[in-house]
């Protein structure tokens, strides 16, 4: 039996990698695209999110690399024996990119719970960028 469960979700978005990264690489934007997150407060490498049930979840930001376009974090709450979340944005050229959100977790079930929600979040990102709701070309993605 494997020790850590791993779940990955991905989307191809018709927007440049720079624009998408500029948005998702900002750790305060999470409530704007991740379902069921109502707040995200960042203090240095600590981020505290508030989820739909009102529970605050402390997280530690591990990587925020604008060259790789990689963001990694771990949930610090005691329930997890292990958690690593990784968001990668890959440039596909022609103003298209691939965004992947990987969740490794123990207990296993939490990989599905967070990874499943992340899939819905990526669909929401795609909708926002492709509907014109989120302006592109300014490398911030912020409306």
């Amino acid at each position: 039996m494997l020790v850590v469960a791993s779940v990955r979700r991905q989307q191809i978005i018709n927007a440049s990698a720079d624009d998408v990264w500029a948005f998702v690489g900002d750790p305060t934007t999470l409530p704007e695209w991740f379902p069921g997150v109502s707040d995200a407060v960042v203090d240095g490498d600590e981020r505290t999110i508030t989820i739909g049930s009102g529970i605050p979840l402390p997280e530690r930001i591990l990587t925020n690399d604008s060259v790789l376009r990689r963001f990694q974090y771990t949930v610090s709450a005691g329930f997890f024996r292990h958690h690593l979340g990784t968001i990668d944005v890959f440039d596909l050229g022609d103003d298209r990119c691939l965004i992947a959100y990987a969740t490794d977790a123990e207990p296993d079930v939490m990989a599905l719970v967070i990874g499943g929600a992340a899939g819905a979040g990526l669909r929401e990102l795609k909708r926002q960028f492709e509907s014109g709701e989120r302006p592109v070309g300014n490398a911030t993605g912020r409306a």
């Binding site: 379902p35 069921g36 997150v37 989820i51 739909g52 049930s53 529970i55 079930v109 599905l112 719970v113 499943g116 929600a117 819905a120």
Partner: peptide, 14 residues
């Protein structure tokens, strides 16, 4: 809709 929903994002759970 799923029951295991700590984000309370599904109508059935809301």
């Amino acid at each position: 809709e799923p029951f295991l929903d700590p984000f309370e994002r599904f109508n059935e759970n809301r």
